[in-house]
């Protein structure tokens, strides 16, 4: 099957419980997980949750962003007035959130593609989630100070 989805991969984790086939649950020092699944509460689930939330947020920003950019067709004054609001401190902080969402969605999207198409993708999906988080942190460490300097000093 060349066509696998992340959903099917991780849903496998949901339905194929570690505790199936009557094996007694191993004594573990870890806190008990709900239903003892491979998926719920783990990297795969959070990857999916954040991908949805950031995707929806980006979609609604995109709707607004096409409309505000369309004002260049109305008049320079109209465009400059609206883009001026993007340069205020409050919107500047909002842009940090926007870039945070886009960068996570981008890196995690590449992770999903690797899970789907790379033969070892499912084996390394947890590691790749933490790589996504690490790259996201690095990107934000580079972007946030520079962006906030631009917002608060111009």
């Amino acid at each position: 099957m060349w066509l696998s989805t992340e959903a099917s991969t991780i849903m496998g984790g949901l339905f194929v419980s570690v505790q199936t086939a009557g094996t007694p649950p191993k004594a573990s020092k870890k806190k008990p997980r709900p239903a003892g699944t491979l998926y719920r509460g783990h990297e795969g689930m959070w990857s999916w949750v954040f991908h949805r939330i950031t995707g929806v947020a980006i979609f609604f920003f995109l709707l607004v962003h096409v409309l505000d950019t369309a004002l260049v067709r109305v008049s320079p004054e109209a465009y400059d007035a609206v883009i001026g609001t993007y340069q205020t401190p409050i919107m500047g902080i909002g842009e940090v959130g926007l870039v945070a969402a886009i960068v996570f969605h981008a890196f995690n999207g590449l992770r999903i593609i690797l899970v789907d198409f790379w033969s070892k993708g499912t084996r390394y999906q947890k590691l790749m989630f933490w790589i996504v988080i690490a790259l996201w942190v690095l990107t934000m460490l580079a972007f946030v100070p520079r962006h906030l300097t631009n917002v608060f000093s111009h």
Binding site: Y79, D80, I83, Y86, Q87, N150, V151
Partner: peptide, 8 residues
């Protein structure tokens, strides 16, 4: 200067 340089 990033976002602060954007205008018409």
């Amino acid at each position: 200067t990033g976002v602060s340089a954007i205008n018409f």
